[in-house]
Amino acid sequence: MPFGGLIFLTSGLYMGWSLGANDAANIFGTAVGTRMVPFRTAAIISIIFITLGAVVSGGGAAHGLGALGAVNALPGSFVVSLCAAFTVMWMTKAGLPVSTTQAIVGAIIGWNLFSGYATDQDALTRIVGTWIFGPLLGAGIAFLLFFLVRFLLGRFNIHLIRLDKYTRTALILAGMFGAYSLGANNMANVVGVFVEASPFTDIRLFGFTFTGTQQLFMVGGLAAGVGVATYSKKVMLTVGSKLFKLSPITAFVVIVSTALVLFLFASQGLKEAMESVGLPSFPLVPVSQSQAAVGSILGVGIAKGGRNLNLALLRNIVLGWVATPLMAALLTYVALFIMQNVFMQVVYV
């Protein structure tokens, strides 16, 4: 692999780092913030399962993203990823809600516009559709799950002390699932734009083939791991104590329902199983984890009788749908122009 390839991957690594620092923190935020699960345990689980999800099942959503626009030159991928990352960073700093998914979609459209490739309308509709459907689905699942958990708790009358023990175990299991789903679904945002222009080649070892794409996903997973290890603790403590004040049990409901949403939009196996029995299946595209989480939190809020419903959260979601892709697309367009005409790099072929 040429050295230049590595340099161009850095923006993807940064996106991976951000995924590990922010999104992984959403999974274990309440658990760590309320000291139910020690940070070390949460970090190790996140790193292992994000990477596992990315390598095993990350391809599906990346393919869905690739259908939107196949960024086919490495310097182009670099710019797309960097601009998405920059949008995320800038909007986070401005205190606006942001999703990596929407940023990367906007950036890809920016690349499409610049390179003159047509944006696949079907793919775009599919992806944007999930932005609306994802939070709704999250709300629905969380709503049902909340009642199920409450029913079970009411039925078995578990002593507070023992319940605490079970809750810890449940939070760890849910965290594993959450991290796996995050890797499977959202790693596409990190490395998806590098798939077409991947600098990796297939490696054959002991009769197994480790494809270039899988290597790419593993690198993304490792970058996320670095994000978890270096920065997520701070975010976890914020999530656990300020942003969403959830009890450990409601946190469990939110984590599981968010993870289910991401999983549904990432699992090739599930898609095939549903299609084989003639059921409509979920498109394999990246969905926003934070918005699925907000949807789930609203679902729990409604299940609780809608007293503490924060409608500003809803408004923020809609704002994110519009502002993030627009900004990312604009930024990418300008950056590609600079890359092509100032740095003399080929940004599309």
Partner: peptide, 11 residues
């Protein structure tokens, strides 16, 4: 033994 960190104060 670090039990019930969430509701320890209450208990």
């Amino acid at each position: 033994e670090m039990l019930i960190p969430d509701s320890r104060g209450d208990v």
